[in-house]
Design a binder for these strands. Structure first.
Lengths: 248, 248
DNA sequence: AAAGCCCGTTGATCCAGATTGATGCGCTCA
DNA sequence: TGAGCGCATCAATCTGGATCAACGGGCTTT
């Protein structure tokens, strides 16, 4: 399932990662070379696979290359809360650069390919190449900003708004990451997972999605979703993309 | 209300800030000197004062020296959500080091003294002194970890647990910051504010605090609070301090 | 010392969302 | 080709927390 690969062969598997960092901070050619030649261990995992578990000691950071992932925590009673969703190109656990023990879980939402990069190598590139370090720091700051918005989302918005907001964010981040049209895409997660992300139950997610469909702001068949009335959805969710800081 | 002061006079007003960073990363004497001689503009503000407003362009980062503060966001309908509370020694808006425009508000919870430090100076100290940069980065990562826990708190815990968890976190952070006993302290915020932080209404906060009192896990008179049964409170809140990463 | 106000306290009622359970559809795999 | 299963869908009932309303006590203001 896991295999060592020679990163000097083409095309460099870390290019999506470089592209993302380069959106955050303008990088020089040497920065690009340094990033692309980071050692990386590829792994393909099935949907639902746990990539990092809470309490685990982490020596490699996990970069998502294909598919979708999420991070989640649980209460002692077993209530599960997804705290973020991730797109290809996202670093899933940058916090492990400075804290070796995981304080939450990382899970594949769909079948996915990830690249494991030793934390030590990321640390030294961040230290030796200030621009790269700054890009990584920026990435963690955007993460934090999204968490704040999620606190607001689950704390103060009603069910329909929460869902609308989540859909808007997902669409906006897809677009920012250059993954295609923000109006028509596949929503990779199950309604159960959407509920875990919004603090709702799956059945209520179902009801509210139906309500959004009946209102004519979205269309759905299976996992395929089309945002018919972006302004309407934006208004229902109270979505303002400022907190994404243009990238993410 | 605001006044320029010569930071070379004793005692250095930035010492609490240095102490906090030094807890995050072991700093050298030159790091200490560099931190203590950062230019800082002192300001004393009354309870409820807005230190930073959403949308505002920020050129100085705000360091809390005395009193308590919070950060908050609002929905378009006006629902207010407090996303974090802050103790003396905390940097209130480190994200402005890399993003010049505020995506949320910072407010004084009590009368407070703050020090404004130009973002440019913080940026250069972070760049020129890797240990300081790392400490600041660590601080933002701990912030993010706390936000994740808050998403879980408002998303998946019931009202009583949310409150118990909030009390545990506040006590633990007080202790970590060396602000005195974790069992007996004054809770600076109003029940309205506690509600805004936990996604509840003030009346329900009141009821649940009474329930905690009746259960004998806490005692309260006015703002003074005593945690009588720490293990009980911990259990009710499902509090596990790992996410605070020992400092904060 | 009186006036006013903010804040905490308590009760009564209402509603958004949870829970439970039943049905149906489209996968995958034998 | 059909069995089995995960997942979406939908309805009926229940409940935690919101909302609305009233009161009291300690604080500041004059």
């Amino acid at each position: 399932m896991a295999s060592k690969i020679d990163t000097t062969e083409e095309p460099p598997i870390l290019r999506p990662f470089f592209r993302k960092l380069n959106r955050l901070v303008q990088l020089a050619d040497e920065d690009e070379q340094a990033i692309l030649s980071l050692p990386a261990r590829l792994e393909e995992v099935p949907s639902g696979h746990d990539l990092v578990r809470e309490g685990q000691e982490v020596r490699e950071c996990c970069l998502l290359l294909q598919g979708y992932a999420c991070r989640h925590k649980s209460t002692e009673e077993g209530g599960r809360q997804i705290v973020s969703f991730h797109l290809p190109g996202d670093m899933l656990d940058l916090q492990h650069l400075l804290f070796p023990v995981a304080d939450h879980n990382v899970q594949a939402v769909t079948a996915a390919t990830v690249a494991w990069i030793p934390t030590a190598d990321l640390q030294s590139i961040a230290l030796e190449r200030p621009a790269v370090g700054q890009a990584l720091w920026r990435d963690t700051l955007i993460d934090a900003s999204i968490f704040r918005e999620w606190v607001l989302n689950v704390g103060r918005r009603d069910a329909r708004s929460r869902l609308a907001h989540m859909l808007c964010e997902f669409a906006a981040r897809r677009q920012a990451a250059g993954l295609g049209s923000p109006e028509h895409f596949t929503l990779p997660m199950s309604q159960e997972q959407i509920g875990d992300a919004t603090g709702l139950t799956a059945v209520h997610v179902n009801r509210m999605l139906r309500s959004l469909r009946e209102e004519g702001v979205i269309e759905q068949k299976n996992k395929a979703i089309r945002i018919v009335d972006w302004e309407g959805l934006r208004r229902i969710g109270g979505f303002d993309p400022t907190y994404l800081h243009a990238a993410a």
